[in-house]
Nucleic acid binder design. Structure first.
Length: 554
RNA sequence: GGGCCUGUGGCUUAGCCUGGACAUAGCGCCGGGCUUCUAACCCGGAUGUCGGGGGUUCAAAUCCCCCCAGGCCCGCCA
């Protein structure tokens, strides 16, 4: 609906001014929309921008399609302020369940995220991938797309071979109470130490890799077994984070089913292909200087070959392919996109996020230097439980635990998703455990507050005619929600939703402190309750799209 | 050496793609607000060479060029 209004204004400006671009932008604090078209016309019309703006406003006010809207010239700016009819329309939609759902689409989307190597637990860097990916997934579903979310299981890598070697050759018993993925990390770290001491082990690891590629049943079974155990651990962590995948796709399947062989044969026929000891592509004409190796001299395939096969398969089954990958994948991601394009296959869209490091430096599973997501979850639940206990001592332990779990989840997810993905971040315990403003719990609190008012209010007659400045500001903030969802899926930037949800909570809190709801009477009470219902519903939809529980009490 | 990303008050951060009205907010700091709808809150104040320099433009945090600093990448690893 906001979109329709935008188009209407845009067309009106173009027709009135005769320009090709209406230069229409968000009006910020001044207006709902504003145009700077007067600046652009100043030179050609040889008139002052202020005069041009005044003349245009006079003409625009005559247009019937803009009636009900306040149009004014403020210096060279032309401001558009929506009328009450617009606000009423918005609120009618915003009180309905599923507000913000966009129209159903038929484009089938496949989204891959997390896909961490199964050689140790998910750490705070991996879950940046999970949370960006899962939030995008929720936004796509809200935007009406049929979507499948996949986890690509790298079960043939050197890391896994090292894990398998460790289990075969070291003291590898699982300790009591030790989670599967933590157990695997312990063996992986120990095995790497052995490799540093004795170079001969590398040969044994290479042998394991050859055996698995050739399909040696015993080796394949060992690899599958350890990888599965690690994934079981991941599933627990991801469930705690409210992150879900529809399908786990195993890398080795693309060897077994012949897809990798098929794509290699196809690549051989390309003009960019070169075959000496290895098979590689020369992509220098596209700006890539290094060789893009597809097959080793010993005949085994490399990761890139399997990845090409995987993406060709995705392209055959879906209309749009999106991958969420760490910034370290930028080069190979670009090479993959380039190669898919040359092959005439669908080109994946890739969302990159920069690294999360620790105050003491980069994280490394191999070196055992990382903060695991499980540790973070445990700590944050403890901290949240203490907080709930201090604030709500009257609640029984079970209720406090449930709230703490939701609050902890909110704190983690929001803390990660609120930052632009291209920003390098340093994990900070103090900040992660903060529940104040610009946090998930802050937004949950605003929601719980709205729920509390509605619960106390009981029945009321919905009224959509807002009057005071605070009411209208809040209603217009609510109006932006569907556009935010649209923007997230268009730009593939979920942090936009995080910012929006916080701003909506801010606006509601300000309203709450200035405009009494339950204490007002008659029509004023009805319309404010309607507004609270709309804001409660919009915050709820926002939180759920962020993968955060919209709890009714906290 | 080359490529990509980042650099915004003491700290963290939005805005940058699509240039425009006093640069967004949080933490911290100073001062206020709970016998009143949940104070995980609200209101007010101080704090900014938008990394540096050049350029384009009526107008630059935003576009272009150069430089500086940090991160990542440039493997017959994944």
């Amino acid at each position: 609906m906001l979109h329709d209004v935008y188009t209407t204004i845009e067309t009106a400006i173009k027709e009135t001014s005769g320009t090709a671009d209406a230069l229409l932008t968000d009006g910020g604090e001044h207006a709902d929309f504003a145009s700077t078209v007067a600046f652009a016309l100043a030179k050609q019309k040889k008139q002052a921008p202020v005069k041009i703006a005044q003349d245009l406003v006079a003409d625009l006010r005559k247009r019937p399609e803009l009636s009900g809207m306040t149009i004014e010239a403020k210096g060279p700016y032309i401001n558009f302020i929506f009328g009450n009819a617009y606000v009423s329309e918005v609120l009618k939609a915003a009180v309905q369940p599923g507000y913000g759902n966009l129209e159903k689409k038929t484009t089938r989307v496949v989204l891959e995220h997390t896909s961490a190597n199964p050689n140790g637990p998910l750490h705070v860097g991996h879950i940046r991938n999970s949370i960006i990916g899962d939030t995008l997934a929720r936004a796509f579903r809200k935007a009406g797309y049929p979507l499948e979310v996949q986890y690509y299981v790298n079960d043939m890598g050197r890391q896994i071979a090292i894990v398998v070697w460790g289990f075969d050759n070291l003291d590898s018993a699982q300790q009591t109470g030790e989670k599967e993925d933590a157990h695997i990390a312990r063996i992986y770290i120990a095995a790497n130490r052995e490799i540093e001491k004795d170079e001969g082990i590398t040969q044994q690891v290479n042998t394991l890799m050859q055996l698995v590629e050739n399909g040696d049943p015993a080796t394949v079974k060992k690899f599958r077994n350890e990888v599965s155990r690690c994934l079981d651990g991941f599933r627990v962590t991801m469930k705690d984070l409210n992150v879900a995948h529809d399908r786990f796709v195993w890398e080795s399947d693309f060897i077994r089913n012949g897809d990798t062989e098929r794509i290699i044969n196809k690549l051989k026929g390309m003009p960019q292909a070169h075959e000496d000891e290895t098979l590689y592509l020369d992509l220098s004409e596209f700006g890539f200087e290094n060789k893009y190796v597809i097959r080793r001299s010993d005949g085994t395939s490399v990761y890139a070959a399997r990845d090409l096969a995987f993406h060709a398969w995705k392209g055959a089954n879906f209309d749009r392919i999106i991958d969420v990958l760490g910034a370290d994948h930028k080069l190979i991601g670009a090479q993959l996109q380039c190669t898919m394009k040359i092959l005439g296959e669908k080109v994946p869209e890739i969302v990159y996020f920069e690294f999360v490091s620790l105050p003491e430096g980069s994280m490394s599973t191999r070196a055992g230097k990382f903060v695991s997501a499980d540790d973070l979850i445990t700590e944050i639940r403890k901290r949240a439980f203490d907080e709930v206990t201090a604030r709500r001592p009257e609640l029984d332990e079970e209720s406090r635990k449930a709230i703490a779990q939701s609050v902890g989840l909110a704190a983690i997810r929001y803390d990660i998703v609120k930052v632009s993905p291209e920003k390098n971040t340093i994990f900070d315990w103090k900040e992660a455990l903060d529940f104040e403003r610009q946090s998930g719990p802050y937004i949950q609190y605003a929601h719980a507050r709205a729920c509390s008012i509605l619960e106390k209010a009981g029945e009321f007659a919905e009224c959509y005619d807002m009057e005071t400045e605070q009411e209208i500001i809040l209603a217009k903030q609510i109006a932006k929600f569907p556009r935010v969802i649209e923007k997230v899926v268009t730009e593939l930037r979920p942090h936009i939703l995080a910012t929006y949800a916080r701003e909506l909570a801010d606006t509601f809190n300000t309203f709450y402190h200035f405009e009494p709801v339950l204490k007002s009477e008659g029509k004023i009470r009805d319309r404010r309750l309607t507004l609270v219902k709309a804001v409660q519903n919009t915050i709820k939809e926002s939180l759920e799209t962020l993968g955060i529980d919209a709890i009714r009490s906290m």
